[in-house]
Design a protein around this nucleic acid. Sequence first.
DNA 1: CTACAACTAGACCATCGATCGAGTATCTCG
DNA 2: CGAGATACTCGATCGATGGTCTAGTTGTAG
Lengths: 226, 226
Amino acid sequence: MWSRPPKAPRQTLTLGKIVAEAVALLDEEGVGRLTMRRLAERLDTGSTTLYWHVKTKDDVLDLALDAVFHEVRLPGREAGWRAAARELMSGWRGALLRHPWSATILDRPLMGPNALERTEFLYETLAEAGFPAPKIAAYSLANYVMGSVIMQVTWQERDEGGTGAFLKERADLYPSLAEHGLDFPGGPASDPSAEWDTTFAEGLGYLLDGMEQAKEARRRGTGRPG
Amino acid sequence: MWSRPPKAPRQTLTLGKIVAEAVALLDEEGVGRLTMRRLAERLDTGSTTLYWHVKTKDDVLDLALDAVFHEVRLPGREAGWRAAARELMSGWRGALLRHPWSATILDRPLMGPNALERTEFLYETLAEAGFPAPKIAAYSLANYVMGSVIMQVTWQERDEGGTGAFLKERADLYPSLAEHGLDFPGGPASDPSAEWDTTFAEGLGYLLDGMEQAKEARRRGTGRPG
DNA sequence: CTACAACTAGACCATCGATCGAGTATCTCG
DNA sequence: CGAGATACTCGATCGATGGTCTAGTTGTAG
């Protein structure tokens, strides 16, 4: 998709309009109901017309996904690499969560301009901070964010609610799962969304701590501590 | 899927046979080519027959995915929580990577018996190790593994190879990406698969370090250090 | 032998991604 | 201003898919 050269439009039906409408459709009805026909209908046109602007349906998804990344604000770097990374990753997560369908199509290269710009920012931040291999550090962060979002969306969207009861019935087989819970059922006076947030932040903290520790250890010329 | 009661088969065509053949088909041709018709053909039967054993195609995928988790060996706990967690997560990753299609269908609750057994083991290990909230720790680890696998499969399977050149052409826009590389092109005498492995292990180390640090800090009654 | 449950099959339906061939509007150049 | 080319749109259609309907066959219990 991103390797192909752009076209010169005449501005009646734009790629931009198609992508915007695709995002709206995905937001309203989910990825399973995004159809070229339905999308065309919402744009008051035929499905064939879309194929002039776009090569395949996958292109639409690529574009829609990159549009999501456009929502991620690039943080400032004054507060240090740690704050910048934390803010970027939180924004990244937030944008994906605002469009839950995006989590289910993350299994494609993130090569859109918006995604690349943010990845570039992350690389720069980590390189400036003195990480010897910014690629590894960036991957760790990105992997964690992607996994977190997929996990959360999975439970929020696809769990039919019977999980808690299901696990308690099998407390003999899975005692720890039954005790601590696998999902976030929103116990007494608790906000499940907040629980997801704190869980994400906590895990991200682990990762950042470990990264910093490794960086400092290497800077002091010692090996891994412990 | 996992909430529904099982059926009593007559053993000519078993659920087990269907799942095994589905995994084989997925391994050979990928998730895009798994069709009820094709699967039935491989089993010398009609597609309708499958629907007696299985309610929807999604059930087949649920079962196939859980079958992958069956390959993950449960490590011993003698070497401590850290080694156990590391081994479990590495095995988890390895199994998913051996069946790359699995990475693209991770956006569903992992409620199969094999997945649950391994998650239970992880919870137990972390709880025994003294983590006050094993759920959070387990989520951090699982999220990281899932994200890592998806990322690697994405690049290995879907990157058409033009990424490196594409990024170098745009070195002005993305200097850090061009310098450090976004993919693992397998430089001089390097094994890309090994690079993925070490990257994964390194990030997992960060995470485990951070987890241990937080656990020790809380045990000593102090807050987060630094 | 009968009756019922377990199992299998082919025809069929709605829908999907994508293509084909034909058209229409708009711009460019003479 | 006119003609050709380019940009763009459309309805009809193809092959394939997930899933259902109806009908049939097999094994087994009484």
